[in-house]
Design a protein around this nucleic acid. Structure first.
Lengths: 383, 383
DNA sequence: CTAATATGCTCGTACTACGAGGATAAGGCG
DNA sequence: CGCCTTATCCTCGTAGTACGAGCATATTAG
């Protein structure tokens, strides 16, 4: 109990440093209501533990100059991994969450064992390069995560795949859309929002609700399957097994259907192609999809009452294809009392890096938790 | 900082006592990993502050007998108020959350000022009776709560009504369905669930997702409008202003539509009447509604990935009207991977007392927070 | 009555946090 | 260049919480 309580204030300081990059020690102490003596003690401790570095702050008028708090160059690191349908990426992040050493590698084969083997080898390289500084691995997967398995990856076409044992380090999982939502809520387009809804359209539609930057992950981590809400025609069966999934109304499959084409093998690239077209048929299909997107989002605003909605992936260009149709459907689907001040729907700012970024953030949460700090301190002093 | 940190462990002890009624001091200390010395100190402090009472525990084998921790007979109280369409109720609860002195009064008029005036008078009576022991008021309202206003109360037919200033005490608000969900998650049918979804059918359908017993309330407290997700026919306009609301497919209005009747003035009593009918037309209508309920719940399970779903209000009898149709629609709407172990859909156990009970729980959360305890302690020692 | 067992209490120690006062490192100004 | 002002940092005495060992206490089993 006290063994972790000991790190409570230190964890708060680190959280503050992470939340407000470039913060000075003086303002940090003020905002956390720390006495200057305590600030001295804690920063000294964190410095000695190689968790933060203090550099002289640029002078700002009179008075004794303070220091800027930042990540220690020898501090702990997380490996963020993103598993996508064509490739996988990984990068390393320090306490500031900045990704470094990003590497992307295409899958050699489609076999889960081969792919996971390649990732495992990549992680082993990272461990060799960074040694004990690497404290956790955080994985964003393009598919539904359930407990510690990956199920229902529409893009990868895998059966249930066990994700544990990827490495000897603590391993955190998340759906890619979930983690992208975390990134938007913490450092992206919904920074100011307490409750934020992130939706991302690629093949289908995923997303997450974040409250205070933490995602609602459900009992098994499988929450956020917004695309499998039955907003659509119940006569249509979705590959996920359910019926009337919203998925089928907002991605490339919907565009193909409206255009009378066969179901595309890769709905994402199909949608991108249609977005580039200017013929009336394509524009009409895009308008229909933009409206389906707006209407569904309105329902979700009714449900979640978020401060902000962020749109990622193809969501942004789909809305941009017919902003009017989107806005009309959005407003029309809102409960009347929401219409006076509807939550803004803004484009996501992280682009394709959202999942990787969010994975890093979640890994850092683990490291900077009170328990994580206690473990790091034991390691550093033990060595 | 330390002023509230001081109450951290005490708050944990109280939370434990609330969560596990009848817990002994020894097991409490064990489960919280408190040394026996600290347990002595804290229980003594809480006893002196009239927060807990210790009574001899029934002997259980050898060893020095321990004590059972319970609410102090002179401890703090909350007033729980429920505002319904025909009447309002209030009761008082101590730290064990047991409601006492429940009073129900029918509205004299429909005017918000008259109704709120009556409630204000009732609360004044409670304050006179309980004095400084009454520490907070918690209100469950049959309608959408947005910030500190009540908007869109389908049943009450009110415009936006400001709920602040009901009393001089701290005032907590919640939608009735939200608070009923809290009650189910904490002390009802979903006690074991970390993530629980509660849905209640009355006029329309409301509910809440709770994580660890805390409801997802959204940015303005208006979350949980499950009935206004567009699971239904977009051609139908809902009184809420939106289209295709699920509401219209699962309550008395849906039954009337299926039976070719006019929209009923009171969908609840209409639905109850239909539930009592045995003619084929009624049974067919009920089956259709049970299926609409099951299908929507499946979508919400896809979305939230809960451990358990609880059904309140007319939800239970509607499902019971055709369990087969419900189950078929439920399973059919689930993503395939959920089907091996679908979350159980169980009937709520709190019945009509759910909202009042949940309001009391939320008020007690406020009282037993670290800040609340600090305030209580200041009052008790100051007097 | 005694042994066994489980729990409560006392007290010395460790550690975190606070707060007051002094020390320190700049800028501003004559 | 030296002194004042300003803002911050550091030191140290004090308070309060938590821990842990040892002892005290209350009960059952035999």
């Amino acid at each position: 109990m006290a063994s972790t309580a000991r790190w409570q204030t230190a964890a708060q300081v680190l959280a503050q440093v992470r939340r407000r990059p470039g913060i000075t020690r003086a303002t940090m102490a003020q905002e956390l209501h720390l006495s200057s003596g305590l600030a001295t003690e804690i920063t000294a401790r964190l410095r000695a533990l190689r968790l933060i570095a203090e550099t002289p702050a640029p002078p700002r008028g009179r008075g004794r100059p303070t220091t800027v708090l930042g990540p220690h160059p020898g501090g702990p690191l997380v490996a963020a991994v993103e598993l996508r349908h064509e490739d996988w990426r990984c990068a390393v992040a320090g306490l500031d969450g900045r990704l470094a050493g990003e590497v992307t590698r295409r899958h050699r084969g489609r076999d889960p064992r081969a792919v996971l083997g390649a990732i495992r080898a990549g992680l082993a390289e990272l461990r060799a390069a960074h040694g004990d500084r690497l404290r956790a691995v955080s994985l964003a997967a393009a598919g539904t995560v359930h407990d510690e398995h990956l199920v229902q990856s529409a893009t990868l076409g895998w059966g249930p795949v066990d994700l544990t044992g990827l490495t000897g380090l603590p391993l955190l999982f998340g759906n890619d859309a979930t983690l992208a939502g975390v990134a938007e809520a913490r450092t992206g387009a919904a920074t100011a929002a307490g409750t934020a809804l992130h939706l991302i359209v690629e093949t289908g539609i995923g997303g997450t609700l974040t409250v205070g930057g933490r995602p609602a992950t459900g009992a098994h981590g499988a929450a956020g399957e917004y695309g499998h809400l039955p907003f659509g025609d119940r006569a249509r069966r979705c590959p996920c097994g359910a019926r009337g999934c919203w998925d089928l109304d907002v991605d490339g499959r919907a565009l193909a259907r409206h255009l009378g084409a066969d179901e595309p093998a890769d709905p994402r690239s199909y949608a991108r192609a249609v977005l580039d077209r200017t013929d009336p048929a394509a524009r009409a299909a895009l308008s229909t999809v933009a409206a389906a997107l707006g209407s569904g989002i309105a329902g979700l605003v009714n449900l979640h009452d978020p401060d902000t909605v962020t749109l990622g992936g193809l969501g942004a260009p789909l809305r941009a294809a017919d902003p009017g149709a989107f806005a009309a459907a959005y407003t029309d689907g809102l409960m009347a009392f929401h219409r006076t001040q509807p939550p803004p729907v803004v484009d996501a700012t992280h682009g394709d890096d959202g999942p990787l970024h969010g994975a890093a953030l979640l890994g850092l949460d683990h490291i900077t938790s009170e328990a994580g700090l206690a473990a790091w301190a034991a390691d550093v002093t033990g060595r």
